[in-house]
Amino acid sequence: MSVWLTIIVAGIATYLTRASFLLLGDRVTLPATVQRALRYVAPAAFAGIAIPAALGSDGIGGSIPPDARILAVALGILVAWRTKSVVACMAVGMVTLWFLQSVGL
């Protein structure tokens, strides 16, 4: 498969994951129990992305020592919980990380 064909088919595959249920339209309705259950997609998905990333198993920031990254994420999450602010979570987490780096942890 050429580079361009690969990118285009990968793009179509990606589009189908996102548009899939939206394109079904209103003719198909999901059972009420499923609709209610789907309100838990956000906490399940964001935990499934955040927790492995915080532990370093997905490769982002792989050079950060585990103790520093876990402490930074834990403090950020605590702040997010108290303030309901994602920006505060990101700011506190990054400042914590930089502080720990500067003291050599």
Binding site: A42, P43, F46, A47, I49, A50, I51, A53, A54, I60, G61, S63, I64, R69, A72, V73, G76, I77, A80, W81, K84, S85, V86, V87, A88, C89, M90, G93, M94, L97, Q101
Partner: peptide, 16 residues
């Protein structure tokens, strides 16, 4: 380590 904001963002989104 600027890309570390990505796990932090998802951590915040998880809490909210």
């Amino acid at each position: 380590e600027l890309t570390f904001v990505i796990p932090l963002m998802f951590g915040g989104l998880m809490i909210l």
